[in-house]
Design a binder for these strands. Structure first.
Lengths: 353, 353
DNA sequence: CTGAAAGCGCTTACAG
DNA sequence: CTGAAAGCGCTTACAG
């Protein structure tokens, strides 16, 4: 088994050159399509044929040694494990990297409030010759990026750098929440409760703000329609129970887990969703929305898109497109689309009209 | 911004040698702790001090060019996105890689029944000089591994290679399911229903087999206690409804999503979990178990462990430990531990005794 | 215990 | 349009 692997001496550029009857220089020019270099189509064809025939694969080490480029970018993610959405960030980054012929390497970092500690992970990528680094965090408005992140092109996902000098991307939580309220209002709801999270993170603030602004814009009072709970099913259950005493026709939950609690609360009160009560979540956290009865209308986060954005932005930076300062000045904000499923209907009162 | 990055000429081994007053050879020996090479402690200390002071970081390209090793391993995963557990496989692999000073690069591959198509992903890693490759699939008993996987050390996660020549690891679904039945029996249950999945995948077969074997071993009839449904909440709902007509005291579901449906079905029939009916899931798929009322007792899959196993096994293979044939002969099977939460109680009948 | 020197496989001025 | 040659920064026999 192992034996069959040992002796496969792979062809080098020298072999290709010999086989095509040209110099290594020419082979290199043809295969890399070096700009400002003319090679006769005839010669080029011979080179390509030889490379093909010999199964030539350029040695990355040798190339890197000359060009100082690895075509590898490093992704440092806070807590791959515990954040349910990291997978989609990774997927977006990975697929965009493949499209651009870049290798994506990943390192997990512990969740911690002070990202300066993460410089070890960044260093690991610097040591490994990563061309650029993506630093993905969850739940931070602003972070102090590890100092060594500045020694290579870098972009941030999910947080803005305190110094404002690193391009960053984040979801537009506020607009996503506002869109939910607008949709509910359009369906005729006026008493729309919000089951808010007690956590003090950007998502909490952004979603609450979006709710409040949209309610105000619609001329709807909402002071008594916000209840707080922990950001899980139990918290959603408790907050919804509290809200239900104030007779809302719809409950918008901070996230899908809280929405699970809202379903439970509605069930206990004998309320049928969506006939008696509309419920909306946020996060589109698999497998919740499709597993609920009825399926949950919710808002999806642009994790895939943020991952892809990070890679393509980094790629531009690597190619010297000097938009870095521009990009860094204002974080890029990506939309959170509303996903309508079955948990929303017009309120009973509207049906009476 | 960009400017501050440009001119940092990093120290090379030559600089360290000059600074320490020794040759490059000696620096290399000291820093790499080359076996069978004596260097006086005095000299070694000077070298280390110089390296430290200059912030010396060996150039990976140059080293790789000589040693033919990248210290990078590639992970090809089928559908990072849609499989909920891929994240934990990646995490396990990543953390084990970090422990061993290896870089983990990942490539996503489309979910497809014929993994031969994935040779492009494998090729990408070969081209990038990966030392070894982990090929992770979901839901396959046996696959035909891409031919080019054999050109480097490789291991499989979640499937056995048809030729039996590549080491593989998979979860012990059967034992995990059997443990559930045993636990239920120990609590006094005798009529234990199984809400099975209609999918024809190893997990389906393994879990059903484990259920049947354990029931038989306990001397419990079970022919009428199996109902089939799709592997989601709707399927679990339908299967449980069917099962409920046969008056089980416990329903064991193929997975946690089906268990969500079982909760719904129990609720509709006015059954309180666990007092009137015990429910058990499988997968420990976040955030379901903790989001249910009551929390769900379930079985967890060793995804993290499989990822870590893959990396450490690959590392042994890379270091020439010739256990490959041994390992490849029989897939390694990892346990699926039972996680007891709140959804199981002794049956009412037992309470009467 | 230490070092001089070759060479890994490319890219890239430079020359023609 | 094409090629000879230097050199990227290491490791590793080999010699002393």
């Amino acid at each position: 088994m192992t034996g069959s692997r040992m002796t496969e001496k792979t062809a080098g550029i020298r072999d290709v050159a010999a086989h095509a009857g040209v110099s290594q220089t020419t082979v290199s020019h043809v295969l890399n399509a070096t700009p400002h270099t003319r090679v006769s189509e005839d010669t080029a064809a011979r080179v390509r044929a030889a490379a093909e025939e010999l199964g030539y694969r350029p040695n990355r080490f040798a190339r890197g040694l000359r060009t100082h480029a690895s075509d590898m970018i490093g992704l440092v993610t806070e807590e791959i494990a515990t954040t349910p959405h990291a997978g989609r960030i990774i997927l977006g980054a990975q697929e965009e990297a493949s499209r651009r012929n870049l290798t994506l390497a990943i390192i997990n970092s512990e969740l911690n409030p002070d990202p300066e500690v993460d410089s070890a992970q960044v260093q690991a990528f610097l040591d490994r010759q990563a061309d650029g680094i993506i630093y993905a965090t969850v739940y931070h408005d602003e972070i102090v990026a590890p100092e060594n992140l500045r020694s290579r092109p870098a972009v941030l996902i999910g947080a803005r750098d305190a110094s404002g000098s690193i391009p960053a991307v984040m979801p537009d939580e506020r607009a996503g929440a506002a869109a939910v309220v607008e949709m509910l209002v359009a369906k005729g709801h006026r008493r729309i409760g919000f089951a808010a999270s007690v956590e003090d993170v950007p998502a909490t603030r952004g979603r609450l703000l979006g709710y409040q602004q949209a309610m105000q814009a619609a001329g709807l009072p909402n002071d008594d329609l916000v209840a707080f709970g922990s950001a899980d099913a139990r918290g959603g259950y408790a907050a919804t129970l509290e809200l239900l005493d104030r007779e809302p026709t719809a409950v918008f939950c901070y996230n899908d887990r809280m929405a699970m609690g809202a379903y439970r609360a509605a069930g206990e009160r004998g309320l049928v969703i969506p006939a008696d009560l509309s419920v909306v979540g946020f996060d589109d956290q698999a497998p919740i929305p499709d597993s609920l009865f009825p399926t949950l209308t919710t808002v999806t986060l642009p994790h895939y898109e943020m991952g892809a954005w990070a890679v393509s932005t980094l790629a531009s930076l690597l190619h010297g497109k000097d938009e870095e300062a521009l990009l860094a000045a204002h974080p890029t904000v990506l939309a959170c689309p509303l996903l309508e499923r079955e948990s929303v209907a017009p309120p009973r009162s509207a049906a009476l009209l």
